[in-house]
Design a protein around this nucleic acid. Structure first.
Lengths: 244, 244
DNA sequence: TTGCACATTGAACGCTTGTATTGCACGATG
DNA sequence: CATCGTGCAATACAAGCGTTCAATGTGCAA
């Protein structure tokens, strides 16, 4: 796990080594799960030095956020300048470093404000593309472009956030050159083929539209629903596949 | 936040109240972020009672896992029995309680073994459907059905895991009756329409296939890549949209 | 060489954590 | 009535946490 600090790490300043170690520890254990002592150990420095360079754990986390966002910004601009052929919503994130992507994956579920901004920017970017089209991309056929873009981003980022589970199922981490192509090809298949026949599709749409009409407003209304209080549900029954 | 323990909670045994509170706290703060004292406070009991009923924090977490999986199993069987028209990979999870879904979302990124099993079972379920088809569902056109199913599940679960960001973008939590239809409709749009024209699609496929051929084996090979050591990347530049 | 600023360490402090223990009220059982 | 198991609270404790601080090493300017 934390074995590969050797050759290349010698070249980095202690501050950079701490930041890199924090990237890994935050990504692996979450913000509250990671400890300053653990980060210091991973970086090969004393806990005091972490404090000296970053002031506090929260400040260290903010520094990680800013660094990661800067790296992503740079990568994106390079990609836009180079004009990659693949559409914007499909992660060209391959060239992004593993640790950066893993950090983003954690930050997205760990309540990072920077990650939230990143997500929202991606939604805006995607919305622009699907509204105006782009080279090879037709404008999307939808009457709710914002939701279209948001859900598309959620699905794309979702594959990053759940990369651990994709790794287990695919045999290689999709955030890695060895695993990415297989995931991306499958994603293209999914986006391409028409799984549902028109009848079922229309039926599903109608049901959802009706549900939407009957549901309360658009703002959040039912702040919490009770969970079924069947305590007896705790008996065991393992042999069947409980798939969503 | 933790305001809605009132009427209905009086009816539950203390053990059930603790479990429900743990569901919420674990989901909100993660396993290491949640504290036994916090859970006890949310449940309106003393910390000692949590210990008395569940033995340890880890055991409490396992109990939550088992409870949630049992609820999901029940819900799924009811759904199968009732024969919902919507396809299996689209969350009919609407009927599932909010707290259960939020807990699963956290568990999927928090290293829960039970959540991993849930994911894998969902992949197997989906793979069966896309291989054999189902009422209204044609078998999927792909030469990698396993990856197809895995990525599809990742995208579906991804929308659950990132529900916080969808909430912010859509104005209502998609795990809620008020927010679900809009998300589901957008998902149908995405799955339906052909965003990329055939030329670009073929081009992307070819590029990915080539990348796959040139990449090392199928097992993970490049365990870590260095991150760009541009420390100067930390300067500020906010006005451009860093999407993705 | 002297001096100063900075990098780095290691010990220490106060606090929160998970857990163990003790004690008490109370309803069922004999 | 005695007693015992159980639900529950209160307290205690060791470990680990984030943070502070004084001391030491190190390289550059004067």
């Amino acid at each position: 796990m934390a074995v590969n600090e050797s050759r290349a790490d010698e070249d980095l300043t202690a501050r950079a080594r701490i930041r890199d170690a924090a990237l890994r520890e935050f990504a692996e254990h979450g913000v509250s799960g990671a400890t300053i002592r653990g980060i210091a150990r991973a970086a090969g420095v004393s806990p005091g030095l972490v404090q000296h360079h970053f002031g506090s754990k929260e400040a260290l986390r903010r520094a990680c956020d800013e660094y990661v966002m800067a790296v992503i910004r740079e990568t994106k601009q390079e990609a836009l300048k180079g004009g990659v052929a693949t559409p914007g919503f499909l992660p060209g994130a391959l060239t992004l470093a593993l640790s950066v992507q893993r950090y983003v994956a954690r930050a997205l579920v760990d309540g990072s404000e920077a990650a939230a901004r990143l997500f929202d920017d991606a939604v805006a970017f995607t919305e622009d593309i699907i509204a105006n089209g782009a080279e090879g991309l037709a404008p999307a056929e939808t009457d709710d472009p914002h939701a279209y873009a948001a859900v598309m981003c959620a699905m794309a980022f979702g594959s990053v956030v759940l990369h651990e589970h994709l790794t287990r199922n695919l045999g290689a981490d999709p955030l890695t050159p060895a695993g990415y192509p297989r995931m991306a090809l499958a994603m293209l298949d999914i986006l391409t083929d028409d799984l549902m026949d028109p009848g079922l599709m229309a039926q599903a749409r109608a049901a959802l539209a009706e549900l939407r009409a009957s549901a309360p407003g658009e703002a959040e209304s039912d702040p919490d629903q009770r969970i079924p209080t069947s305590d007896a549900a705790a008996r065991e029954a393992d042999s069947d596949p409980p798939a969503r």
